[in-house]
């Protein structure tokens, strides 16, 4: 197991606990998707792992290390990266600078150069636009920049918050197939996705979250077949 969440309760500041007693795990070579209605706390799980919420109870274990109360930069150094939702790039910086900033916590310049070339060969369109301001790119290209920035860290775990949001169906398909490629290259993926059907198709396992609590858990295929999931999140009738 590469990442394990045990009885996690978390919220923001002095506000109420958004997550209550959440349990979740992620194995090597796995894509796990968290689905659930708006406000269920899906993104809050990713943010908690990344040290961006106030964890009130429970533990987050990465490998054999307890990362529950580490700071974001320490968590990045431990091998976890996150692609946040929506505005997740630096629009005023060039594509190449965006990638360099992705590797901000890394010191080894030759390693950074090497990773940059790897990201360029993984997303050839980014190499074409490397000297262009990222703000002028299309939504799909910007999402690739955002994922590329995280890949600069060569993470063991990549967390993606709504990677398909705002993308055209064809571009979405492309992003999902890239996510599968990233997994095949050896990075475990933990993803939150509104488009549950598409996401579960490529997922090994999935969790359904309701009002900050675990509701259902299972393999991607089984969750897709589950009538309750179908009714709630996939838009199918009974």
């Amino acid at each position: 197991m590469i990442l394990e969440i045990k009885s996690l309760t978390a919220g923001y500041g002095s506000g109420p606990s958004i997550l209550q007693n959440i349990n979740l795990c992620l194995h090597e070579n796995e894509i796990v998707t968290i689905i659930g209605p708006n406000g269920a706390g899906k993104s809050t799980i990713l943010k908690s792992i990344f040290g961006l919420t106030d964890v009130r109870a429970g533990k987050i274990i990465h490998g054999s290390r307890d990362i529950t109360h580490l700071k974001t930069d320490q968590i990045i150094r431990s091998g976890i990266a996150m692609v946040t939702q929506g505005k997740n790039i630096f629009p005023d910086l060039t594509v190449e600078e965006n990638l360099e900033m992705g590797a901000f916590t890394r010191r080894d310049t030759s390693e950074i150069q090497k990773r940059k070339q790897e990201v360029f060969s993984f997303f050839p369109v980014l190499e074409k636009f490397k000297s262009k301001k990222t703000g002028i790119l299309s939504g799909g290209e910007r999402q690739m920049v955002a994922i590329g920035m995280s890949l600069m860290l060569a993470p063991e775990v990549l967390m993606l918050d709504e990677p398909s949001i705002g993308l055209a169906p064809k571009v979405m398909q492309e992003v999902f197939s890239k996510i599968q490629e990233i997994k095949n290259a050896g990075t475990a993926i933990l993803m939150v996705e509104q488009n549950a059907a598409k996401a579960l198709e490529i997922s090994d396992r999935g969790y359904v979250l309701e009002l900050g609590k675990n509701a259902l858990e299972g393999s991607g295929k089984n969750l897709l077949k589950n009538p309750r999931v179908g009714e709630l999140y996939l838009g199918k009738s009974k």
Partner: peptide
């Protein structure tokens, strides 16, 4: 570059440490 990154998008800058 990190200063320009913070100017461009402070939240993402924090996410990348």
């Amino acid at each position: 570059k990190s200063l320009r990154a913070v100017a461009s998008n402070r939240n993402v800058a924090e996410v990348f440490g």
